[in-house]
């Protein structure tokens, strides 16, 4: 415990770095997934091939990606964030398509019949109704991204992953346990923020039986993504 207090500023720095390395890819993944999902929901024949591509990317081992990327992006944050973005995309893209497909057919028909054009229908009817499913995907993507950052330690940029590497070399369990605890805390905080965001964005879902399971438990049940293990 005294080790933790002695190194508090280093731990804060590593936690911040971990959050940064995890969340920027999630954000980029979201920005790519939404338009991609819209396109694949509209022209549904595209969905299957695009899903195959994202699934294959998801199966690529992070280490292999690092090896390839270092040649272009060097030992930088970007090299860590690109694989994480790819993994986010693989989780989030099907959520966007599922979300858009969750719009009940009578609702879609009613929107067309009332004179919504394609874009207005998307913005005011389909995307809002898809929001709960998209946020569910976002929660899984965020939690896994936070835990996957440690893999970056392979090239020396791994946020809290540094504690595992360092702890192992020094045979110092406290450091490893601290790393695990901080990653879990970070994941819980991020997940809570997303749950609150969902409540705020989807007021119609209140009292309609939302997902009340513990965030971490939920991620575990859905199969926590492990880089290169899929």
């Amino acid at each position: 415990m005294s080790w933790v207090f002695a190194n508090i500023s280093m731990l804060a720095h590593l936690t911040g770095q971990n959050a940064y390395l995890a969340l920027v890819p999630v954000l980029i993944g979201l920005v790519i997934s939404v338009p991609l999902g819209i396109v694949c929901a509209r022209w549904s024949w595209l969905y299957s091939p695009v899903l195959s591509i994202t699934s294959v990317l998801y199966a690529l081992p992070a280490l292999a990606l690092f090896v390839v990327l270092i040649a272009y992006t060097g030992l930088t944050d970007t090299t860590v964030m690109i694989p994480l973005t790819v993994y986010t995309l693989a989780v989030l893209f099907p959520s966007v398509v599922d979300g858009l497909r969750s719009v009940p057919e009578p609702v879609r028909q009613a929107a067309v019949a009332m004179g919504f054009g394609t874009w207005r229908r998307l913005a005011f009817v389909e995307l809002p109704i898809a929001t709960p499913v998209v946020i569910a995907g976002l929660r899984i993507a965020t939690v896994s991204s936070i835990s996957l950052v440690s893999v970056g330690e392979l090239i020396g940029i791994g946020g809290l992953g540094y504690l595992f590497e360092d702890g192992q070399q020094r045979d110092f369990t406290t450091e490893i346990v601290t790393g695990i605890v901080l990653i879990i805390v970070l994941a819980l905080v991020a997940d809570t923020v997303l749950v609150l965001a969902r409540r705020w964005l989807t007021p119609w879902q209140r009292g309609a039986g939302g997902d009340s399971r513990l965030p971490i438990l939920r991620a575990t049940l859905r199969g926590r993504p492990g880089a290169g293990l899929t």
């Binding site: 009578p106 609702v107 028909q109 009613a110 009817v125 109704i129 119609w204």
Partner: peptide, 11 residues
């Protein structure tokens, strides 16, 4: 336009 399941916007 009125349809069978009402087709109301749930949100």
């Amino acid at each position: 336009y009125v349809i069978q399941q009402a087709g109301l916007f749930p949100h």
